[in-house]
Design a protein around this nucleic acid. Structure first.
Lengths: 122, 122, 122, 122
DNA sequence: GTGGTCTAGACCACC
DNA sequence: GTGGTCTAGACCACA
């Protein structure tokens, strides 16, 4: 895993987990890797994974069974969707729209850039 | 001024200045507020404004006359436009498109959110 | 059984057993459920029950006949009563009284809460 | 400061802060000691204080101004009172009442123990 | 100066 | 084995 240096690693790990939930790779009630396993696979310190898990637990997305491990919460997908959507609409979109206006980019151009982008990644 | 907590304050101040330049409120050769004035009006520490001004100076958007003040650079508008556009296309758009896909937001919905947004700010 | 997350599970199981002894559901000399039976009915790992039984055995409340099972000790009720009373007066009450003062709860309110509580559990 | 070994130190520090808020030693809007100062006065590692501050910030009791410090939140006293009361009623009272019933302690005796207790501490 | 992140490693209670 | 706590110390961005 490569980490973007502008975002805390523990949040980037949370992003990966959220993505797994949103894509339904990980479903409600399933156990997720233990802190130590995750730390090895993500190549970080266990404390960093612990922070990720605490972060997600505080938001009700995962929960913990003492001495056993962490599990995907019941409404994890909904909660994640809501959380990410809120973040997106609150933090990203205003800047996006402001930039589009300032840089004179309209929806047609945005759509064009989108097609270019998806073209590249296929 | 309200600051978003996910972006460094000095960058948010830089955004405001860039916006003034792009909207041609502030034109090439004009003097901009002193660090102290800006600090007062923006309710931040003068050091924070200094950082903003250094940041913009390094990018050739403003320049400094020692003991006199800071001024808008000659090609400031062009440079700002290029800088912001590059940043936008390189950094913002890929994240945008990825989030749209993940959160199941299409262009129609984006446009709807855009209209809501501009509705609110008018 | 639902477990309070602020108290170790093995102690909560011990509490249940002590309650049975105090209420004279389980009397001196009677055999109590095997570790495995208890683990099933309490939905925990047998090791956790073992820990409970060791804890109670160390305090002379239950005893073990190897290969046969665990039994309620001779003076179990008295010992339990003494043990719990001591714990209660030494550990719980000081915290209780301090909290009552800090949270501005007096005996009348405590009594009211008590009546609410017993209302709920009947 | 002496720490009870049954409760995490970072929570005991949080308790002290909450007590200061409840007793109105620290009022809304006031700055509280920096992480490093608190770490020295509490004789713990700064990371432990950071955990305390995060814990309280997540509950809306304190807030943070970047690079400046932590402050008591606007409704801190109310929130603290509500938080502690909830904890008390949810976690402590049920055990209390259960113990009182099991140990055959009624409100009169409880009041007597209370008077003894306050007698001792005066 | 402030807080935030991360690592390394120890120790603990608990399952 | 699991997670939770705490320490020590480094490094960073920010005010």
């Amino acid at each position: 895993m490569e980490y973007n240096e502008n975002r805390a690693i523990y949040l980037q790990i949370a992003d990966v987990i959220c993505e797994n939930i949103l894509r339904e790779k990980w479903k409600a009630g399933e156990r997720i890797p233990s802190i130590r396993e995750m730390a090895v696979s993500m190549e970080v310190n266990p404390n960093t994974v612990l922070r990720t898990y605490n972060y997600l637990q505080n938001r009700g997305i995962i929960y913990n069974r003492r001495g056993i491990g962490y599990y995907i919460g019941a409404d994890a997908r909904d909660k994640t969707l809501r959380l990410k959507r809120d973040e997106f609409i609150r933090d990203e979109l205003p800047r996006l729209f402001r930039m589009m206006e300032l840089l004179d980019i309209d929806f047609n151009e945005l759509e064009r850039l989108y097609n270019e982008h998806s073209g590249r990644s296929h």
